[in-house]
Simulated scan of single mutants.
Amino acid sequence: MKPLAFLGALTLPVALVAGLAFAQSQVGTAAAVESLRGADPDVDVTTAPVFHQNKQRFVRNYRLQPPLIPHSIDKYQIDMKANECLACHEWRKSGERGAPTLSMTHYQDRDGLQTDTVASRRWFCSQCHVPQADAPALVENLFQSSGQ
């Protein structure tokens, strides 16, 4: 029984050494990896922001498409405790801020009853709404608007 116990004790160190050797052999291969835009993943790439706010909102491409956000939301806090979107878009404040009011569907609970506060299932705005951006496509997109 002692020889088998000794063999079991050697298995872990041998596996660790083999894993380390494999990882070292892959270092040269990592340089061949490229991003979708062709950048080396190990090089810091400084780019201009792709966000371009348009005076006019983008048209929707299909019925019931959530509107795109015509401004940056990079520093907005949207979590369990706060939602900065509501500072302008909540129905009580949208008039004085000149912002579009949330759809009344955002004020319905899961049973369809209207409330005065945003429903918890509609709390995380960026789950459906994204900032509009004039950015180059990463992959080919063959989508055609239903309005065409």
Results as ranks from 00 to 15, higher is better:
S72Q: 09
R63I: 03
T101C: 13
Q108S: 05
L102M: 13
P3H: 06
D109A: 08
M80F: 11
G8M: 05
A87T: 14
A5Q: 12
A15M: 06
Q148V: 00
R97F: 05
K55Y: 06
Q65M: 13
V50R: 13
N83V: 02
D40F: 06
L64S: 12
M80G: 07
H71E: 14
E140F: 07
A21T: 13
A23I: 01
T105D: 14
M104Y: 06
L12V: 00
Q132Y: 09
D74L: 05
D116A: 12
A133C: 04
L142E: 02
P67S: 12
T29W: 02
Q148N: 00
L138C: 03
V139A: 11
L113K: 14
D40W: 09
A39G: 14
R57C: 02
W123D: 07
Y76G: 02
L142T: 08
W123F: 10
S103W: 00
Q144A: 00
A39Q: 15
Q127R: 05
Q56F: 13
A39Y: 15
S146G: 00
S120Q: 11
L86G: 06
A39H: 15
C128N: 03
G19Q: 05
V118N: 03
C128L: 02
K75V: 06
A21K: 15
F58C: 02
R97W: 05
Q65E: 15
E84K: 03
P41G: 03
I73L: 02
T105F: 05
G38R: 08
S145N: 01
G112T: 12
A18P: 02
Q144K: 00
R92A: 12
D134R: 11
I78C: 04
A9V: 00
T115E: 03
D111Q: 13
W91E: 13
L16A: 09
A23D: 01
L142A: 03
D74N: 10
S94N: 15
M80D: 14
V45H: 14
H106V: 06
P49R: 09
F58E: 09
L4T: 00
